[in-house]
């Protein structure tokens, strides 16, 4: 066996991390409408109803209503009423009995987020604050400003481990598909949807598929998240969210203060 010359070996060793960390194009700091409300990219429905992600079907229906001149005489309150109506109807139409039970039991009293209980998979993946995507070679780290949390997405071709126990963000495996980043997540602990998405929640049988794509220059990051859950959903439940590239933005330290009971 022919040994590599020491100098060449050093060069190759130095290159290995770079080779392993092949860029996906999704690396960087990304900010949603709440952080960049004055950017001309955003539409009115983005900064009023989709800054923390929103159910895709009602979002598209609201956009279509706004595009139709026949609705120009409607007040915003009337348009919003129709949006909330379509959102509730959509979730109910795709929910199983168990899903409806969670939906009907969604109240402010059992909203964990007012008691410094950080978000589960769905709420955290679509949270309104900025995030950074960092490439570590065999995995991506999604670093969220919200709750200062991190999520790992393996991109080294591995399979899901056997006997996964449900955890807050589950176990995520990603791959590139024609320039898009597709992430499948399993082993997710049961949690609620964003309350303003109409309430409700999913079981620990849920599977999340996130399809991230890039468009435009400067780039816009879009995701369609599809949840399937044999326990709570009869059909897939899809969410949408967008971020803008904000390379100069620095993630800030988040902190939580429990809400006392007096108010």
């Amino acid at each position: 066996m022919k040994l590599m010359k020491p100098r060449l070996a050093i060069v190759v060793a130095a290159m290995l991390p770079c080779l392993a960390a092949a860029q996906t194009g999704f690396e960087g700091v990304w900010s949603g409408a709440m952080t960049t409300p004055n950017d001309e990219h955003w539409k009115v429905e983005d900064i009023t109803h989709c800054w923390a992600g929103c159910p895709l079907v009602p979002y598209q229906q609201l956009g279509a209503m706004l595009d139709d001149p026949a609705n120009d005489e409607l007040t915003w309150e009337e348009l919003e009423g129709r949006y909330y109506g379509s959102m509730a109807q959509h979730l109910r139409s795709i929910s199983t009995e168990a899903g409806l039970e969670i939906l009907n039991g969604s109240t402010d009293a059992n909203n964990p987020s007012i008691h410094c209980h950080d978000y589960g998979y769905m709420r955290q993946s679509l949270n309104p604050l900025p995030m950074a995507i960092i490439n570590n070679g065999d995995h991506l780290t999604f670093k969220y400003e919200e709750w200062n949390q991190e999520r790992t997405v393996y991109i080294d071709g591995r399979d899901f481990p056997a006997n996964m126990q449900p955890s807050q963000f589950g176990y995520s495996i990603g791959h590139m598909d024609n320039g898009d980043l597709v992430i499948e997540t399993r082993g997710i602990a049961a949690d609620i949807y964003n309350p303003f998405s109409g309430g409700g929640g999913y079981s620990d049988q849920v599977v999340g598929m996130e399809h991230y794509s890039l468009s435009g220059n400067p780039p816009v990051l879009s995701v369609v998240m599809t949840l399937t859950d044999p326990v709570t959903l009869k059909e897939p439940y899809r969410f949408h969210k967008e971020w803008l590239s904000t390379p100069d933005l620095v993630l800030l330290e988040d902190s939580c203060v429990d809400v006392p009971g007096e108010f």
Partner: peptide, 8 residues
């Protein structure tokens, strides 16, 4: 108001 809390 629902970002973290729909309590009010």
């Amino acid at each position: 108001s629902a970002h973290h809390s729909a309590a009010v």
